[in-house]
Design a protein around this nucleic acid. Sequence first.
DNA 1: ATTCAATTGTTCGTACTATAATAATCAAAG
DNA 2: CTTTGATTATTATAGTACGAACAATTGAAT
Lengths: 141, 141
Amino acid sequence: MTESIESYALDEQVGYLLRLANQRHASIFQSHTLDGLTPTQFAALIRIADLGKCSQNRLGRLAAMDVATIKGVVDRLRQKGFAVVEPDPDDKRRTLISLSPEGEAMVARMKDVGQQITNETLKPLTAAEQRNLIRILRKIS
Amino acid sequence: MTESIESYALDEQVGYLLRLANQRHASIFQSHTLDGLTPTQFAALIRIADLGKCSQNRLGRLAAMDVATIKGVVDRLRQKGFAVVEPDPDDKRRTLISLSPEGEAMVARMKDVGQQITNETLKPLTAAEQRNLIRILRKIS
DNA sequence: ATTCAATTGTTCGTACTATAATAATCAAAG
DNA sequence: CTTTGATTATTATAGTACGAACAATTGAAT
């Protein structure tokens, strides 16, 4: 009863643990991916595939990325030849983003790899724990 | 049975959900902290308080930060007046890091705030889910 | 038709993250 | 005592992330 006031267990704080879990996942991701595609770029790519042609800001919102962040991500996807950019004829403010054929091929390949990455990340857990983690993370996201 | 091949639910992948959870936590952290202290800086500060005077690389290892990352973090903590840096007389390669009096005061204040941040981050969860999340995150970290 | 508010995309500044390369130092083994 | 191998810290490069400020454009209200 004398140590409770001063004690603060960093290793049991959600924030710290989320950072560690992210680190581990990023490292697993990197060991599986080709063309140096990052988790963020992959998420954006999947979203474009699901949404079809859409504006940059809308893509950012639906991929949970800041306007400044999505700009950089789209730039790199374009640079790597996975995304195509064109002005919206109906709204001069907008830039329309879509997948190139190489982007489509990459998405097809990455869906399998993505599943492997998820499996490897969750491997230390039982099946019940895996379901639980996903469910709980969705509640605090 | 026709859609299983092409479907890939980004919103159910651990990696994506971990990124979102991190975003939410960082935003909560930022709304509680003073002096612009970041979650990473806070973690480093707590570790220094627990370890006492120690080398920069050792601090980085125990706070789960890359050598390049911990350097930047220590630089900023020093700049803000929370950390003190001195050469190790016994090993000319090493730089010893310790807390300044202001750093000690900040740690004392932040332990309370840290608990509030954790509580708010976990608020959408039941008590059982909170315990579960921490336990599961520790298994995959 | 003009003003006003909102949206879109860009840029800047700051911070975190990791890898790779480098230089200085240390410890241990020959 | 010198070579070898490991450790420590620094730097460069690249990517993610966000807030803030900005200009251009749009749509709606007056």
